[in-house]
Amino acid sequence: MVRRCTRFTYVVVFLMVCAALVSVTNIGQLSVFLRTKLHDVYGSDTGLYSTRFKLRGNLSLEYCQAVPDSLVGRLNIDIDAALQSAPPLEHQDVSPGGVWSPKSCVARQWIAIIIPFRDRQKHLDILVYNLVPVLKRQKVSFRYGNKTFNKGRLMNIGFTEAQKHDEFDCFIFHDVDLIPEDDRNMYTCSDNPRHMSPALDKFNYTMLYKGLVGGVLSFRGKHFTKVNGYSNLFWGWGAEDDDMHKRLFAAKLSVERPSITIGRYKMIKHDRKDVSPVRLDLLKTSIARYLKDGLNTLEYKLVETRLEKLYTRIIANVGDPPKNQTEHPL
């Protein structure tokens, strides 16, 4: 008899994006130089601000443009193309594990993109199909990786595991069902946490409410640590992002956004499953709870790390939800 245990074993996709634009096949073997440089202000639409970045790579090369000439602006997103056609040319030079790096310049940030998902491999395939060309035009080299629900706990795992690979400047937490519609929305970090997805096609490209930070959210590591990461208590769908907004408020961190003409995303249609029955009750305790529920209470068991063609899949066991979800330890 084969025992099915898919309920409690989870998969996180983290996509580690490094912006050290040198020719490499394995980021872990990259010999790099470090230095700090003050860059210029480019404006809120792109999310690039005056900030200090650690630069990595062959410093005999020129630094990459903050806003590359290769950007095309508004994109025509074909949701079905990833599943119906051969991989585009942009994917052919990606090494196993999802590693790629251009040769022409030294980039400004080392980035990790963390994509949690559960039972939605199709959505991951569509996202990777569409996102890889965007990242290449933005001149960021990258490595992909994988995980799932409890979503908040998986975000924390992605952050923790990514730091084992390198010292990243920027962490981007990315829903698997959101496809960027404009490559001027730079996948980089600015001086404050940045909500990159204020405008979704599902909601006619309007932001639903002022405190929205769900979808795609970028953090510097020090800021993610300051808010103690995401809550570990939200099992099932809903409210972990609203909890994060309260953490940001409590930690006195401002949230920046691109304009709604650039911060546009197409949402892949899907059904909501396992809606959390206690999400609204938990939100009432967010501010009082955030320093004792998050990165500092994270528990998980790393099950497997596997190199796929376009990403690194990391499987972790995050434990079982409480039998009575109205009762929590905090």
Rank of each mutant, 00 (worst) to 15 (best):
M207G: 01
Y10T: 13
L127R: 06
L200H: 02
F203T: 08
L55F: 11
A20R: 14
S44M: 00
Q121K: 07
S85F: 15
K252P: 00
L307M: 15
G229R: 01
Y187I: 05
F159W: 03
R264Y: 10
E90G: 09
L307Q: 08
V318M: 15
C5A: 13
P96K: 04
F149Q: 05
Y265G: 02
A66Q: 09
N150R: 09
L282S: 05
V128A: 08
L71S: 08
I115A: 11
N192C: 15
V22A: 05
S218T: 15
L38R: 15
M267P: 00
P88H: 13
N317H: 11
D166T: 10
S197E: 02
T6P: 11
W235V: 04
R184E: 14
V13H: 07
P321Y: 07
G238Q: 05
M267E: 11
L34Y: 14
L89I: 04
R52Q: 10
M155S: 05
K147I: 05
A19V: 03
A82V: 10
S23Q: 13
A288W: 04
I114Q: 06
P88Y: 13
K54M: 05
T25S: 13
H174Y: 15
V318Y: 11
K147M: 05
H91N: 04
P258M: 01
M207I: 15
K252W: 05
I79W: 04
D274N: 15
N324A: 03
F8W: 08
G97S: 06
Y300G: 04
L283D: 09
L282F: 00
I77C: 09
I115N: 12
V22E: 12
K202D: 02
A162K: 02
M196A: 15
N58G: 05
S104K: 14
F171V: 03
N204Q: 14
M267S: 10
